[in-house]
Write a protein that binds this DNA or RNA. Structure first.
Lengths: 222, 222
DNA sequence: ACAATACGAGACTGTCAAGTTCCGGAACTG
DNA sequence: CAGTTCCGGAACTTGACAGTCTCGTATTGT
């Protein structure tokens, strides 16, 4: 019977090559609401086990899906993870209603809600377990995890600059990099929470002084 | 013949249990100069492939050693990696001859030699591929990779404080964290070099303003 | 010389996960 | 109703790697 099956499959492959799409609207439809659930389960497992520690069976079990269902949508583990990362970095941020308390200090602090802290730490755990994935797929080195936050911070600082609260000489891009790098270093290397207390210190001790007095007298330069 | 061998091995195991250490100074001695070579090869492979991408055969081939030799010294891959990390973080730094140019700015810049940049990036690559290892061995979360650098920077800043170059109110620990976190973020996430140009900007735009004007007038606090 | 151990090289074994295939059943189309 | 494609679940195949063992050789103490 294998011979018969082989003959049929060869025939269908030829038919594909000729007709390209012999049947498209037949049978049960794919349930695309499962896509999001599988991707969300993938992010969960990635955060817990990293890329190499994650198995397709784990994801299938978490999403209560069959592996065949997953391989019908993504051709490999790498593709699933790539889509999951894109899904994770999708922007659910409302740029319209930014805080506007009158001072840059309070604006920055208003952005640090407990919810975004927790979600940020989840993303950090995902990022930490992705080393081997990036070494195999160097093309998508994904710097964009902190992009939305940096964009918002940059907007707040530009507002502060235009109302004269900080210097027009201030290097806003550098200041935003300080925030994101301190957040990731504290989460990835030090394994401590980026909580309000620490963030307040960072703002008062480093960011505001740097933004208000960008040039300190280049006296000793040669 | 297998039976004879089994009998012998069982006999020797029993002898071990009775005498515990029947012979210690017999036979060829272990060549401990291979230890360093194997550990160095381990670091190399870790930097290139990460923990999960590294195989014992790769390390053995790189070090031109047999796997039996490796397992005679380390009982598992995890133990080998742990020793390799300790070896990598060993301190080859001469705290005695620190730069002393008269200004904090030049002192900090003097520490950034091309050699230490390259070695630092190698360590960062190792760290980046270690996510799954840490998730399996949470006890040794190794924040100590940047410790020596931070200690040196801290010393330079304290000297600057005692000669009145920066404020005595300055948060030196926070400033050192800014340096190490910017270096690791730039290497791990942005995949750019922590070169002299960028470091100079960081010092002039962020660090020196913060250290010289630690309090900017807490005017708008409520 | 001899026994015991180390060495590099590589064969061998057991486990684990990626990817494939099959099952019984459900949903959609004509 | 009949044919097709989907679903979750599970068995199966295959390849890779950790860890063990064997072989021929080199080095050491007695």
């Amino acid at each position: 019977m294998n011979e018969i099956n082989n003959e049929e499959s060869v025939g269908s492959k030829l038919a594909d090559k000729v007709a390209e799409k012999p049947a498209k609207t037949l049978g049960r439809k794919r349930d695309h609401t499962r896509d999001a659930e599988i991707l969300e389960a993938t992010i969960d497992i990635l955060a817990e086990a990293g890329f190499d520690g994650m198995t397709m069976d784990m994801v299938a079990a978490r999403a209560k899906a069959g592996k065949a269902t997953m391989y019908r949508r993504w051709s490999s583990k790498a593709e699933l993870v790539r889509d999951a990362l894109t899904w994770m970095n999708r922007n659910h941020l409302e740029l319209d209603l930014l805080p506007d308390t009158g001072t840059l200090r309070n604006d920055l602090l208003a952005l640090l809600k407990p919810q975004s802290i927790e979600e940020g730490e989840r993303k950090l755990r995902v990022l930490a377990g992705l080393g081997s994935f990036f070494s195999q797929n160097p093309e998508l080195v994904n710097g964009g995890i902190f992009e939305p936050w940096a964009v918002v911070n940059s907007e707040l600082m530009h507002r502060a600059a235009s109302r004269g609260e900080i210097s027009t000489q201030a290097d806003i891009e550098m200041a935003c990099q300080v925030i994101t790098s301190m957040a990731s270093y504290r989460g990835l290397v030090q394994r401590k929470t980026f909580d309000k207390h620490f963030y307040t210190s960072l703002i008062d001790v480093v960011l505001l002084p740097a933004l208000k007095n960008p040039i300190t007298s280049p006296n000793e330069m040669e």
